[in-house]
Computed example of a mutant assay.
Amino acid sequence: MTLPNLPEVPPNPSTQQLAQVVGALVQELSYLLSGFLSSENAREFGGWIVGKTELQSKDKMVGMSTEITGADDIRFWAGDLKTGAPNFAVTESGNITLKTDVGYPRIEFNSLNNLLAAYSDADTYIAILPNYSGSVPALVLVDAATTKAFLNRAGSGGTTLGTFDGEALNLQPSGSLQINGSSGLSGTFYVSATSGGAATIPITFTKGIRTS
């Protein structure tokens, strides 16, 4: 319920003090009767706690805020304390954080860090990054908190599919594998050993011609 912010009556008040208390009481009741409610004369609405800069649930896990700290302050949040790690948050500048669950697996959207990420645990996930290696957007695969593979597109270098940390890159088509390029095919390819066949050997192509 809404509680009036009643003025206190001092001990042994003078006539002037009583007049001031009555004046403050009349103003408070006028606010309430006229529908003018603020954090000065209201403390609770339907389970929502009214503060000087915040309107939040009793457990403080959901709310909105007008607090100004000089940073990009959270304006709306849910799922945890505002000062904790809420699953949903919108800052003053419009940056958004959204997590589907507090545990794993889960999906996370964050306009400041990962645009979109799917986690199996905190250190194993696939993510779309807006500014990977500078200003290059990329899709990355992370295992044990280490990026193992990536796909990105750079204006000067073209599209790259690669690995880190000594990871192999395996292409396993159920049919034939075709590589077409207008500028030819170059590089060293390692052919895996097959049953009864030769050991793993490198095959080098230069401009589409096998050179070794």
Rank of each mutant, 00 (worst) to 15 (best):
A193E: 09
S195P: 04
L139A: 07
F45H: 08
E67N: 12
A85S: 11
Q178I: 05
G187I: 06
I126D: 02
L169Q: 09
T53A: 07
Y31Q: 10
F205R: 02
L29M: 15
L3D: 12
L6C: 09
Y190Q: 15
D121H: 07
G79R: 00
L141S: 06
G63V: 02
I201H: 11
Q20H: 09
Y31A: 06
L185I: 14
S192D: 15
N110H: 08
G197F: 14
P105H: 06
T2D: 06
F88A: 05
M61S: 03
F205D: 01
N152A: 15
N180C: 11
F45C: 03
L151C: 00
Y132K: 07
E92G: 05
K99L: 01
D73W: 00
L112N: 15
E28I: 02
S133D: 11
F164L: 12
L115P: 00
T100S: 14
E108V: 11
D80C: 08
Q20N: 06
S182P: 07
G63C: 01
Q172I: 10
S176K: 11
L29Q: 15
A122K: 15
G134A: 12
F150Q: 03
E54C: 04
I201C: 06
Y104W: 13
P173L: 08
F205N: 02
N152R: 14
E8K: 08
N131I: 06
S34C: 05
K52I: 13
L139T: 06
G51I: 02
F150W: 13
G208K: 08
T146Q: 14
S57T: 15
S65M: 02
I201N: 15
T163H: 00
N131Y: 13
Q20A: 08
L112D: 11
S182M: 14
L116I: 06
W77H: 01
D72R: 13
T91Y: 01
G35E: 09
A193W: 13
I96E: 11
G158R: 04
F205A: 02
D80K: 02
V140T: 04
G47M: 07
S183V: 15
T206D: 09
S14D: 11
V9R: 06
S38I: 09
T146V: 15
P105S: 06
V102N: 07
G158S: 10
E44F: 09
L139V: 09
S182N: 15
D165T: 12
Q20K: 07
P137Y: 02
G79I: 01
E67F: 11
V22P: 00
G103V: 07
P11D: 14
